[in-house]
Structures are given as C-alpha cells and as structure tokens.
C-alpha cells in the first residue's frame, strides 16, 4: 500500500535551493568558528587525556554508590533503625542490628549495625534509603557509579567498605546535629542526667522508640 505524500508547494526561494544551502553554511560555520577559535566553546565531549579514568564529573545531586557516614570516633552513624531497608523498594539492604555492650555509654540509647550489606547490583538508585534515614547515616553522594566487576559478589558491599567510601568532599563525617551519648551535650537534653534507659527486652528488637 503506497502512501500519497502531500507536500506543500515550494516557494520560488525554496526551489532555488541555494539560499537554504547558504543558511545551512551559516549555521555550520558559526559552530565551526566558535568551537575552533572562540573563547566559549560548545564542545560537549571531554578530552580523553592520559587515562581512561578521565570522566565527566557527575552533577552534585547525582545518586551514586552508597556510603555510610562516620562519627568523630570513626564508628558508623547508623543506629540500625531499619528505616532504609524498610523503605527500599528493591530490598537490597540487609541490616543485622546489635546492642552496644553494657558499659558503653550508648547502651540502651541506640543500636548499631553488626552487619550492613547493600547489594549494589539489585539497587535501583532511587534514593529512598537516603530520604528515610533519620540521622544522615546513609548517603549516595560518593559520585561513583557501580563499577564493572567480574563476580556478582563483588558488588555486594559490606559495612566496612561502605564506611570507607568518602563523599564528594573527601570527608566521612555526617551532618546530623543531634548529639549522642559519648558527647556530654547529649546529657543536657535530659537535664544533665544520664538519659533514661529503655528496656527493650532480650532480643533488642522490641520496644524501640521513646
């Protein structure tokens, strides 16, 4: 079945063809001179200098590989509340919460992740975990995309690896202003007294929250 293509009639200038070519030449020449000699170039590609690792930096709001932020003492800021793993639509976060030892000032105040595993291959990089986190413990601002790997297991990141990844600014610290038990300021929240303990039972999973 052949189509009958109805074309609008050409004007005299159009059928001359030359003005259109001159127009086109104007566009290409403008581009050429700007990119060849101009101060402000439109070039979209990067010069591939030195190594294949030369890449265009991602935009600042890029959601890249996850990282866990640290406290001053290097321990994870994560309190193992399981908000992120609950929010995760791909169910790629696994957290095994643990209770701090009896003599730790944070004991009874919060928990910590014994294991914190993210399957970067399953992750859909939606950023919900970052939104869900109440204490700025998980971030996606590493500026890295998932690297190519040989084994699938190489993309299952454990806590140590997530903790070791710095942010774009090269730092590990979190920005959560809320003070924690080792910090004397945290006691001021409770009139200088040690914060009250909450009996969570033996499992440590029930009775969370105050």
């Amino acid at each position: 079945m052949a189509y009958k293509v109805i074309r609008p009639p050409e004007s005299a200038v159009q059928s001359l063809y030359v003005p259109a070519v001159v127009d086109g030449l104007g566009i290409t020449m403008r581009k050429f001179f700007r990119n060849a000699f101009g101060r402000r170039k439109d070039t979209a590609t990067l010069e591939y200098v030195g190594t294949p690792e030369t890449t265009m930096p991602y935009p600042l709001r890029h959601r890249g590989l996850h990282r866990l932020t640290q406290r001053e003492d290097g321990s994870p800021r994560c309190v193992a509340c399981l908000c992120c793993s609950t929010a995760c639509p791909a169910q790629c976060i696994f957290i095994e919460p643990g209770e701090y030892p009896e003599d730790d000032p944070r004991h009874g105040w919060e928990r910590y992740p014994v294991r914190f595993v993210i399957d970067e291959m399953r992750c859909i990089f939606c950023g919900y975990c970052v939104e869900a986190c109440p204490c700025d413990a998980i971030r996606m601002d590493s500026g890295l995309h998932a690297p190519p790997v040989v084994k699938r297991s190489d993309l299952i990141f454990e806590k140590e690896r997530l903790l070791s990844m710095p942010g774009r600014d090269g730092k590990h610290l979190h920005k959560n202003p809320r003070p924690d038990p080792p910090d004397p300021e945290s006691y001021s929240l409770h009139d200088g007294a040690r914060p009250p303990l909450v009996d969570r039972g033996a499992s440590g999973r029930d009775g969370a929250g105050t």
């Binding site: 290409t28 050429f32 990119n35 979209a44 590609t45």
Partner: peptide
C-alpha cells in the same frame, strides 16, 4: 576535526 568542531565534538 572540522566535522567535530561543527558538531560540538573534539
């Protein structure tokens, strides 16, 4: 090279 300049490439 010229085509690259015209097409915003290097």
């Amino acid at each position: 090279r010229q085509s690259a300049m015209i097409q915003d490439r290097l």
